[in-house]
């Protein structure tokens, strides 16, 4: 991903859109759950952050050698959350004009469905970033499978890995439910998980800015499963 500080106005605008798409939700959820800000304060902080990245040259000051971009954004948000003069800053941008399209209501409904958080604010942020990355990768996979006539495979993947069914369905149960042989369930799920992995890697490759080590990000995600 190019940084929103490089290229012409159009390129910069597109880069900022990509940055916002990748990070607004984890940042907002972090502000609400990790920093315990009110809905309005959380949205203000996120809006201020993305406006200041270019206006105040914060993005240009990011040093990949010191922190991942993701961590840098969180630290900036921490500063904004603690800044009581934020409202004044918003007025300067044009009387509280929101530059970023944030679907706070939908995110609030999602937050309400989550179990209470006991982790540290930093862990909450990392988890929410991962949740948002995986959510979009799943959406990509569904779109791709639907377009290519493999909707049934996505339905199987969804039943096996996404749905919160308790107890978890066995492969035999899934085979019966989807009128497949157990070996076919194994093969379909294997392929779907492989494609999901590719979708995550593709998103990471798109959204990891130059300077941040993609392999480091991927290693953090794929380093190992639970033993």
């Amino acid at each position: 991903m190019a940084l929103a500080t490089e290229g012409g106005p159009e390129e910069r605008g597109a880069a900022m859109d990509a940055l916002a798409r990748a990070y607004w939700k984890p940042l907002y959820t972090y502000a609400r759950l990790g920093r315990r800000l009110s809905e309005e304060a959380a949205e203000d902080a996120v809006q201020d952050l993305f406006a200041s990245l270019v206006e105040k040259g914060w993005l240009a000051r990011w040093d990949p050698a010191r922190a991942r971009l993701r961590t840098y954004l969180r630290v900036l948000l921490d500063g904004l959350a603690a800044n009581t003069a934020r409202a004044a800053g918003r007025e300067k941008r044009g009387g509280g004009v929101r530059t970023l399209s944030i679907d706070a209501a939908e995110t609030e409904a999602e937050i309400a469905r989550l179990a209470p958080r006991t982790a540290s604010p930093e862990e909450i942020y990392e988890r929410e970033w991962r949740r948002w990355l995986f959510t979009r990768a799943v959406a990509r996979l569904e779109e791709d499978y639907t377009r290519s006539g493999r909707g049934a495979r996505f339905a199987l993947f969804s039943a096996a890995d996404l749905a919160d069914e308790d107890p978890r369905p066995t492969y035999a149960q899934l085979a019966e439910r989807f009128s497949l042989k157990v070996t076919d369930v194994t093969n379909h799920l294997s392929a779907a998980r492989r494609d999901f992995r590719r979708a995550v890697l593709a998103l990471l490759a798109q959204e990891t800015p130059r300077g941040d080590a993609l392999s480091g990000e991927a290693r953090a995600l794929f380093g190992g499963g639970k033993s």
Partner: peptide
């Protein structure tokens, strides 16, 4: 949005090598 349980399952699946067919 993915549930906590689904997130954990996907993370485990990503971290575990795919040895199917080997």
């Amino acid at each position: 949005m993915l549930s906590d349980a689904a997130l954990d399952r996907l993370q485990t699946s990503l971290g575990t090598p795919d040895t199917s067919g080997t």
